[in-house]
Write a protein that binds this DNA or RNA. Structure first.
Lengths: 337, 337
DNA sequence: GTGAAAGCGCTAACAT
DNA sequence: ATGTTAGCGCTTTCAC
């Protein structure tokens, strides 16, 4: 009476099938040279035992694990969520898997990437997080590509990136607001340190300035609802009151709408225009009808996956910017339609 | 000029440090018997090479990977998202990692779990998905515990589960609605097949029936906004119109509110009471003020992790139900307060 | 086409 | 406390 609680090994299968252990390996290796009959025998034996090759052992030999490491900022934004969804679908189609870490603090990212490296992941994807240059260098040295999603390189050439056109989207929004007749602008930034926020901010501001308008009033909302509520209150309390608010993401824009409507009694669009960024689901709900800019997350992830699978040239990783499209809605229309 | 692109091995470190390879292993093994001086030497050598033990090799020997497999339903709900966040934090504190799969279709789950097994994961967590009994048996046979989150066992004793008190929450809601004076009830279910939805539904319905009221009118919303919009339209168009709607989750309840308010011109609370389940962020927004039942996701995940880490008794896996708390808001009050 | 044998990088006896 | 020796389960020469 054997007490093994472990899975059957290639040896077990070999014994039952009456072949060598190597033959079992070959039976499960796609283009290996093995007779059809042998393979059948092996498969039958494997079936009866419920055997499947141990991927850990394979990884050890091949030096690669079939695993892609993903580090996600915490809390997960809707954007990183859909990115993860898309990524999982594409990668599992390619037979790869995802090891996920959520980076609570900002400094934790490096630690996570170190761990990832120890699993010999085939690549590292950073969603809404960045990693130290030192570590990026080490990944590079070990041949593990790093791809950064929505965080363009800060002068480092050790990782590739796929980024949405944050500047362009913000500029579209500024143009639109101007054309709708809004003139006194307020801005709710994400984090001052976040490049995404900075790009959205500068795309917006620099267009306005180029048109001869003053810098918009600015508050920081930290990408969170609470922060945005405070920021919106401050901005809308100023005299003269801004007649349009641009928020670095939709989440904050929805908060701003709630403040404008329920605390200041303003009618959205007519009294104050409010625009966001990302086109999350709620933006299209009838209570909000939020003007926003939509980044094609799926397309972006497709690019990421293409980079991952081709093990993109290590010498000079590429940086891609993907355009989205502007979606005007009633939250920035003087008169509803 | 060496061309290795691979990470340094324990052997490399041993040579530099002038010790045996086993000593290197011991230096990195927490309570191993090794002299302080030797460990120092090893660490210095390791540092200079950027060496960290290869977890793949370790997993191969130990027969366990330090990886927990998670299968998430697609699209990810806010609940599974926060569950994932919490899980990641707790597990990484315990030195474990998460291999994530998103199950697009429903039948894909088995395939994913098979893959997980091949990585010799230490446990499998099912978020909003279920697995075939056959596979559950195999996991059991291989000593890999399966824990199901928010999906109680359908008669199978091959996996453990941690579930929110769906029946209890729904019953609370029914009591509250009745006490608020609502009398003609409508119900928007999730999926008919989903046990979560069935429990919420039956908890609600059976309380009403026990009070001598008729079965509520019922539509299915598939847990999605689109489905809920249709369902709400149908229910609110009936004569006599229901004066209260209970939805199997908040997401659908928000959709129902939008329909009632913007399509039927009803005042929420006064003309029609609407309640949901889950207490997602949006439920507390001023545009909704949705009455709902909050499940303590973090606590639930803590239980899950406890089960995972103690490698819960395999013979008869436990099933835990966790209570939440009822949150009455204005969406079910005849007169606002 | 197939088996024997040598590792992948590490841990765990077993000696010393 | 440390080195030596076997493997973990697989892939991959290398003979045949």
């Amino acid at each position: 009476m054997s007490n093994r609680i472990s899975a059957p090994s290639a040896h077990d299968v070999a014994r039952i099938a009456g072949v060598s252990q190597a033959a079992v390996s070959r039976a499960f290796t796609p283009g290996a040279s093995i007779a059809k009959a042998t393979r059948e025998k092996v498969f039958r034996a494997a079936e009866s035992l419920g055997y499947r090759p141990n991927l850990i052992a394979r990884s050890l030999i091949k030096g690669e694990s079939g695993i892609v490491g993903v580090v996600i900022g915490n809390p997960m934004s809707p954007t990183s969520m859909s990115a993860l969804d898309a990524l999982s679908a594409l990668l599992s189609a390619a037979g790869k898997h995802i090891l996920v870490f959520t980076a609570d603090g900002s400094s934790a990212v490096d630690v996570h990437v170190e761990d990832l490296l120890r699993y010999r992941v085939d690549a590292v994807l950073l969603l809404t997080t960045i990693v130290s240059t030192t570590l990026a260098e080490r990944c590079q040295a070990e041949g593990v590509p790093i791809i950064s999603f929505n965080r363009p390189p800060r002068g480092s050439k050790f990782f590739a990136s796929v980024t949405g056109d944050n500047r362009g989207g913000a500029k579209c929004t500024a143009e639109h607001l101007l054309q709708q007749g809004y003139r006194r602008f307020g801005l709710i930034a994400g984090y001052s340190e976040s490049s995404t926020s900075r790009d959205r901010e500068s795309g917006f501001t620099s267009f306005l300035v180029s048109q001869g308008l003053p810098q918009p009033e600015r508050e920081v909302g930290h990408y969170k609802r609470e922060g945005a509520l405070l920021a919106a209150r401050k901005l809308l309390a100023r005299k003269p009151r801004p007649d349009a608010l641009f928020c670095a993401n939709d989440h904050m824009a929805l908060a701003a709408i709630d403040v404008a409507r329920y605390e200041f009694g303003l009618e959205i669009g007519r009294d104050v225009g409010i625009a966001g960024f990302d086109n999350i689901d709620e933006a299209s709900w009838p209570g909000y009808e939020l003007t926003t800019y939509s980044l094609p997350v799926e397309t972006m992830i497709e690019k990421v996956v293409a980079m991952l699978l081709t093990r993109t040239p290590r010498k000079s990783p590429g940086h891609t910017t993907v355009e989205g499209h502007f979606i005007p809605r009633n939250s920035t229309r003087r008169t509803r339609k």
